[in-house]
């Protein structure tokens, strides 16, 4: 369980209010409080790697680096983080 402090706000984590579905062709995350859905087309191995990182908590740079490595482009990687923060998948 995360113990929040404004000092560790730089760390990104998966919200506990999510339901995760890893499928062969991608990752689907339902944010249960606001019923928002996040999807990412990726192989299961990448889904697992991303979820592991977000469950432990990681800096934005670490998450971004992983996404850029997969997407080969910084812009969609940054957009994905921003969107997931806005809809409460990441906190």
């Amino acid at each position: 369980m995360r113990v929040f402090s404004p000092d560790d706000a730089g760390s990104l984590r998966l919200s506990p209010y999510t339901r995760i579905n890893v499928q062969p062709d991608g990752l689907t995350i339902l944010q249960t409080l606001f019923e928002q859905v996040a999807m990412l087309r990726c192989p299961p191995a990448f889904s697992t790697q991303l979820l592991d990182l977000l469950s432990r908590g990681a800096t934005e740079e670490e998450v971004l680096a992983l996404l850029i490595d997969f997407m080969h482009d910084e812009t969609p990687a940054r957009e994905l983080i921003d969107t997931w923060l806005q809809i409460g998948v990441l906190e």
């Binding site: 995360r2 929040f4 402090s5 404004p6 706000a9 919200s15 409080l33 906190e91």
Partner: peptide, 28 residues
């Protein structure tokens, strides 16, 4: 939401950092 004691003291004195506000909203 589990928070640190200093964070609670801020909340009790109606001082809310931007980061705290953000996670409070995210958690409803």
């Amino acid at each position: 939401l589990c928070i640190t004691r200093p964070c609670l003291e801020d909340l009790l004195h109606h001082r809310v950092h931007n980061e705290t506000a953000f996670i409070l909203v995210q958690r409803g």
